[in-house]
């Protein structure tokens, strides 16, 4: 009798635990599942003076190399840096890029990009498009969102690498 009760309790506990574990797939604190927050003073100062800070794990190494090699024509603006700063930031971006940081989200982004492609926009990747396929054009155009490149409008933890579905809040 007692053994049976114990077995039942164990089964119940195990089921709850497993469910939690499976649900945690897209959660923060899932170790290498989500992008780890990263810091680098020059990256933060230089790359966030005109736009939100994009996590290095959102693009592969070849994309960062191409982007940092064309800062004088950065999406239509001159964002050129002195050579030393440019090199330092590039090294940091490469070390934490989608193909080097080891997180599962980064791996999925990297593997969604064809080998011969070098996207400069995160929004061009198949991973991004698949993840956002339920968002209609009118939602993107809401004043508080504005464009697909404004991650932080809905993912408040975007600059820290938190893109977990649990924290998404789409502004009205």
């Amino acid at each position: 009798m007692f053994t049976r009760k114990l077995l039942q309790a164990g089964l119940l506990f195990g089921a709850i635990f497993t469910t939690g574990y499976l649900l945690a797939d897209d959660h923060e604190g899932g170790g290498s599942r989500s992008l780890a927050p990263v810091t680098q003073p020059k990256w933060q100062a230089e790359c966030a003076s005109c736009h939100m800070l994009y996590h290095p794990g959102l693009l592969p190494e070849r994309s960062w190399r191409k982007l940092m090699g064309g800062l004088d024509k950065h999406f239509g603006e001159n964002a050129s840096l002195d050579k030393l700063t440019q090199q330092e930031i590039l090294q940091f971006l490469v070390a934490n890029s989608a193909d080097h940081n080891g997180s599962r989200r980064s791996e999925k982004i990297a593997s969604s990009i064809p080998a011969q492609a070098t996207p400069l926009r995160i929004t061009e990747t198949a991973y991004f498009q698949h993840k956002h396929d339920e968002i209609s054009a009118s939602v993107w155009k809401r004043p508080k969102i504005g464009s697909q490149s404004n991650c932080i409008a809905c993912h408040s933890g975007a600059e820290k690498g938190n893109f977990s579905e649990d924290y998404v809040r789409i502004p009205r």
Partner: peptide
């Protein structure tokens, strides 16, 4: 007005 804050094209 240079006393007012401005805004970049990327909304910063």
């Amino acid at each position: 007005n240079p006393r007012q804050p401005g805004k970049t094209r990327a909304n910063k």
